[in-house]
């Protein structure tokens, strides 16, 4: 394993759609404490038509990362480039236009739709905002969108409360698709739904990706679903990415101890083996406390100005922080 310089953290894709470099978000502390580093120097690329799965436990900074990329949360430092354009320093007006290319699917379909607007009004809104369709074609486009997410276009006059969770999430997806975006942040898009509906929504997202060439940042805590949809997976812990690689690399040969803890936490669908696993002594998680410690390989990253990142295989990197001390 070798230390890398920051520019080479991620294997450079030919022409990434989204390029995130050293993105940090800090929340000011109440009173006199230190500011909370919600996202700490996160870097990754997402190529056209690709999905990056972002996993980690609650509070690890997954959602904040997604919101910071969409500029819904102010970044403390770092750079976010979409289609080659820097978003963090963009003017508000230009950013509003740029939002045509990046959209957001939120976790909770019950609260992310305006309770007093009909489905038709909700879907018309992005079209009006970006003037992407001539007024005469609005109705037609809304019907098209509903059809795209397998909803009956006759439902246009209904209100969100008349729909089930899965149907509402389809509406949320249709709204995101309205302006033909290139990139969608899906923040826990299925975790509020029941299992059968989850599968339907995941399948829908996958088929839309194939048909429209979309790129996703897929944020979830459900490891099984992420494996299903993601080409590459990044594991987040305490605001940092501790491991990143292709889905197969991360799931089949996890390199970071935290990734192993996460994977081990998934219950085994075999009562006998699961019971036996539960009987075993709980793993020592002491190493996950504190600030992550120094480099496990003894590299002085600060003085050599390299990232705290080591490559274990092509395209498979791991952080040298939060390892059990030897």
């Amino acid at each position: 394993m070798t230390a890398l310089d920051p520019a080479a953290i991620v294997e450079e894709l030919p022409r990434p759609l989204l390029q995130v470099r050293d993105l940090s978000v800090r929340f000011p502390a109440r009173g006199e404490g230190k500011a909370l580093k919600a996202v700490d120097r996160v870097s990754f690329d997402i190529g056209p038509g690709q999905t990056l799965g972002l996993v980690g436990q609650s509070g690890s900074g997954k959602s904040t990362t997604g919101r910071a990329i969409l500029q819904l949360q102010k970044a403390h430092s770092g750079s976010v480039r979409l289609l080659g354009e820097e978003l963090t320093t963009m003017s508000a007006t230009r950013l509003r236009q740029m939002r045509r290319h990046m959209q957001f699917v939120l976790q909770n379909p019950y609260s992310s739709l305006h309770p007093r607007m009909t489905i038709g009004q909700i879907l018309r809104e992005p079209l009006l905002v970006h003037r992407s369709v001539p007024p005469a074609r609005l109705q037609e486009r809304v019907a098209e969108l509903l059809d795209l997410v397998s909803l009956d276009p006759g439902m246009m006059q209904r209100y969100p409360h008349e729909f089930s969770g899965g149907q509402r999430q389809r509406v949320v997806i249709a709204r995101a698709l309205a302006v033909n975006p290139d990139f969608i942040v899906c923040d826990e898009p299925v975790s509020a739904l029941d299992v059968r509906t989850q599968a339907q929504i995941v399948t829908l997202l996958q088929s839309l990706q194939e048909r429209l060439g979309l790129s996703y940042l897929f944020i979830a805590h459900d490891l099984a679903i992420v494996r299903e949809v993601a080409h590459r997976v990044a594991v987040m812990f305490r605001g940092r990415i501790v491991e990143m690689g292709s889905a197969a690399q991360v799931y089949d040969s996890p390199a970071h101890p935290y990734t192993r803890v996460l994977l081990d936490a998934v219950p085994v669908p075999d009562p006998v083996r699961q019971r036996e696993r539960l009987r075993r002594a709980p793993p020592d998680l002491h190493f996950l406390e504190g600030d992550g410690g120094g480099c496990v390989h003894g590299t002085d990253h600060a003085s050599s100005n390299t990232a705290e990142w080591h490559e274990v295989a092509a395209g498979h990197g791991v952080s040298c922080r939060y390892w059990p001390s030897r």
Binding site: R96, Q97, L113
Partner: peptide
């Protein structure tokens, strides 16, 4: 702070329209 306001903002709506259509009616 409700989700539908964030969703509206992520669409790229002007602040004026956001307040008028997504906050005031509620």
């Amino acid at each position: 702070q409700w989700d539908h306001v964030e969703a509206a903002r992520s669409i790229g709506m002007s602040e004026f329209r956001l307040v008028l259509h997504h906050i005031l009616p509620l």
